[in-house]
Design a protein around this nucleic acid. Structure first.
Lengths: 162, 162
DNA sequence: TTATGATTGATTATCACTGACCTAGCAAAT
DNA sequence: ATTTGCTAGGTCAGTGATAATCAATCATAA
């Protein structure tokens, strides 16, 4: 197995995004990118799915056929309401503890929350889930409770002035 | 059985964290670490769970599969205040939502927590209390749950200073 | 003795990557 | 207008590598 190919491609794409001055997107050809890294084209799809997802702050647009392309857009929420709504969408109405942890990791990467805030939220989720287990709440309901807790904490945080 | 293994691994990880100059995290492979100490890989998970929890000021990130890893982050903060025992005393083993709010206001005035952190804690308490009410928990027990939640969140924040 | 903490290993879940096959867009030939 | 063919990207299942989970067991202290 090629070690860290995904990470290499991710870094390459991030550097391209970083170079953009006015735009907040890049456009490329899947086949060409695959050739640069000497891998199979579907590897690119894997990188996009695992590293440039909406919860990580990106949107993907693409077209097939002649003059096809892949476009990577960085999601920029200009106002607090948009941030709040975006995060609420990602959480949905049910989320596991592990999915929540992953989301918090991404949010700290994007500097939407601090390390201390992430710590507090993880503790609150764990504490809340413990109580739910003590009360014999089934797993599906627990995931809904997680979503409520997480959404309330994060959306409020996005809406206040920091 | 050698009950110092966990302590040994903990010391080793702490020394690695201490050696870090610029970063406040270390990254390693579970399998390799287990080999160093001649133990089963799941022993590492036990060490992380029992010694590097969010309540103790650490966050864990990990990935499975090829190029998998475990990352340990030490969350640091600007206010090197301690007072966790003092705060734990104030909270006691039972506290009402309103008493909790007053304590949080006091802590923010003293700049031991930020406004955002105070918001997060208040929301966590409210959410947790709502769930408890839904489960027909009596008021006395609810106050104990409040105290657990508040203590876990606050003491972890106060403990970290590095 | 009992309760708690430490350790193990079997099982399960997830990740990185590949390649065969599928589908969409487009335009030239009919 | 329809068919055909080329060129792109999409999907999915499989493989090997790695970490997480969980129940059982052992050790230690109260």
């Amino acid at each position: 197995m090629n070690n860290n190919l995904t990470r290499e491609i991710e870094k390459y794409l991030l550097s391209l995004l970083d170079e953009q001055e006015d735009e907040d997107f890049i456009q490329l050809r899947r086949k060409e990118l695959a050739e640069i890294f000497g891998c199979v084209p579907s590897q690119i799809n894997y990188v996009l799915r695992s590293r440039f997802s909406p919860e990580q702050g990106y949107l993907i647009e693409s077209r097939r056929g002649g003059s096809g392309y892949i476009k990577i857009l960085k999601i920029t929420c200009s106002n607090p309401e948009q941030k709040s709504e975006h995060i609420s969408d990602i959480i949905g109405d049910s989320i596991s503890i592990n999915e929540a942890k992953r989301l918090l990791e991404y949010l700290q990467d994007r500097e939407l929350i601090t390390g201390r805030e992430r710590l507090l939220i993880e503790i609150a989720l764990k504490e809340s889930d413990n109580q739910a287990q003590i009360n014999d709440i089934d797993i599906a309901t627990r995931k809904e409770i997680n979503a409520d807790m997480l959404r309330h904490m994060l959306t409020s945080l996005m809406l206040i002035e920091s």
